[in-house]
Structure formats: C-alpha cells, structure tokens
C-alpha cells in the first residue's frame, strides 16, 4: 500500500514536470507551418507554456506536432520519426489535414495521421488559428498532468497486465 502511494506521487511529480516541459519536434510539412511560425512568434508565444525548444532530434523531444498534410510518400517517414521518439511521447495533429486529410481526398493524401500513429490532441482548422493551437497545448498539458495520453494509458494497462500475470503466477 505504502509503495503504491509513493509510486503514484512520483508519477504525479513526473507528470507535473512533463506538462511544463514540452520539447517539440515540429514535423512541418505544409501550410499550417506558417501558423506554427505565428504561434512561436511574439504575439502568441508558445514559449509561455515551456514548449519553445524545437528539438530536431526525435530522441530529445516529447511532443510531436504534425503540422500539415501527410502524404502517402511522407507516411513512412512520419511513422519512423514517431518510433524514434523517446517515451513518454505525445502527438498533436495540427490542422485538419493532419487530423482527417481535410478536403484532400485523393490518391496521395493520408486520410488523417491516426491511420499511422496514435494521436493525443486534434486541433481543427485549415489552418487553425494560433489561439486554437494554444488551446490544444493547454488541453494536452491537462491530459499529460492527469496521465491520460495514449502512451501513458497504454503503459498503465501493460503494468496492470503484468501485475495480474504475477499474481496469477503466484
């Protein structure tokens, strides 16, 4: 019992740290990149949330922002970069093209990046306004703080399964 409380508290501490320290990997492909620039620019200033370091090495970043349309040719690269991200990792689908493919429904465009990688927050808009992006980041902070992102949930499920297996084994 005591151990469990400690691990929960530790997890809370980790989540507190994580949510104020998003090092982003900007996977910028298209028009939304212009709005991503605006988000980083003085007026909206993503840095206020502690998310200003764009790390171009996937190993060092936590938050992958998929900014713009993902085409079928791009998809393997996206998947690979996602696999290279170190845990815990979160994904924001920035804009409607990344979320669903947008109004490009043709031979070349992936209908939403959730066909390829799991997504935590979808930001609609073509392209989304910077305010919407900030809202999305706050939403993700909340999710991370509560430990409800896709990967955190999966890790928890796996831990529970392990525990079950152990107790069954005993």
């Amino acid at each position: 019992m005591g151990l469990e409380i400690t691990t929960t508290k530790l997890e809370d501490l980790a989540n507190w740290g994580r949510k104020f320290s998003f090092f982003t990997y900007p996977f910028i492909t298209a028009c939304c990149g212009m709005e991503f620039m605006s988000v980083a620019a003085p007026k909206y200033d993503i840095a206020r949330f502690g998310a200003e370091f764009p790390r171009f090495s996937p190993r060092q970043s936590d938050l992958m922002m998929v900014v713009g349309t993902i085409t079928e040719k791009q998809a393997p690269a996206l998947k690979r970069v996602y696999d290279q991200l170190a845990e815990p990792k979160y994904v924001i689908a920035f804009g409607v093209c990344a979320s669903t493919g947008g109004f490009y429904q043709n031979y070349s465009v992936v209908p939403g990046i959730d066909q390829i990688i799991p997504v935590d927050v979808y930001i609609p808009g073509c392209p989304p306004r910077p305010e919407q992006v900030l809202d999305g980041i706050i939403l993700l902070q909340k999710k991370v703080g509560e430990g409800r992102t896709v990967n955190q949930m999966r890790a928890r499920r796996e831990a529970m399964k392990d525990k079950q297996r152990q107790s069954e084994g005993v």
């Binding site: 501490l13 104020f20 320290s21 200033d45 206020r48 502690g50 200003e52």
Partner: peptide, 25 residues
C-alpha cells in the same frame, strides 16, 4: 514573454519552475 506558466499551486516564480520541470522530465 518567455516561459511563465509552470506553477505549484499559485506559485509561479516568473517561470523559474520551468527548469525544475525540465529536469524532472
């Protein structure tokens, strides 16, 4: 403005807590 959002309760310390958050993360 730069980082200023990290908080413990209502303590924000002009964003100094951000580097603690970085370290923890």
């Amino acid at each position: 403005l730069g980082p200023n959002r990290a908080n413990i309760g209502s303590i924000k310390l002009w964003g100094i807590l951000h580097f603690i958050a970085d370290a923890i993360k």
